[in-house]
């Protein structure tokens, strides 16, 4: 008889594990992808994973402050997306490309 307790009793560890997987997926996107917009999207994915952790902790510790932090994270993510996309549009108009390799000569 297989112990199905892990699959049936959903606790905080499940949510934490899921958000860890999502976070690492976002991390891999940032590391592996070369399209700057996809990198921005991967950062959004990581922020989402963190939000999930906050809400899970807020639920299981019965403190509502975790959900407040999620508000703040969402606002900052929206702001980051707005500025990031404005930059991307400027870069695209200049280089006709949003691949990060194409504007490497910004350095120095």
């Amino acid at each position: 008889m297989l112990n199905t307790d892990v699959f049936v009793n959903i606790g905080i560890n499940h949510y934490l594990g899921l958000s860890a997987i999502l976070f690492v997926l976002g991390l891999m996107g940032v590391l592996l992808r070369r399209n700057a917009i996809v990198i921005l999207m991967s950062i959004e994915l990581m922020l989402n994973a963190v939000n999930l952790t906050f809400v899970a902790f807020s639920r299981y510790t019965h403190r509502i402050d975790g959900q407040i932090i999620v508000f703040f994270v969402m606002t900052i993510a929206a702001a980051e997306a707005a500025v990031g996309l404005a930059l991307m549009v400027s870069i695209y108009k200049r280089f006709k490309e949003v691949n990060i390799r194409f504007f490497e000569h910004l350095k120095g």
């Binding site: 949510y15 899921l18 999502l22 959004e44 989402n48 939000n51 999930l52 809400v55 899970a56 807020s58 639920r59 959900q67 999620v70 508000f71 969402m74 606002t75 993510a77 929206a78």
Partner: peptide, 21 residues
């Protein structure tokens, strides 16, 4: 993720997640 927030009982955050993100 928004649906997961609902399963965690954070209904308002779930709605805001849908609207904002």
């Amino acid at each position: 993720v928004s649906a997961l927030f609902v399963t965690l009982g954070a209904y308002f955050i779930a709605g805001v997640q849908l609207i904002v993100y």
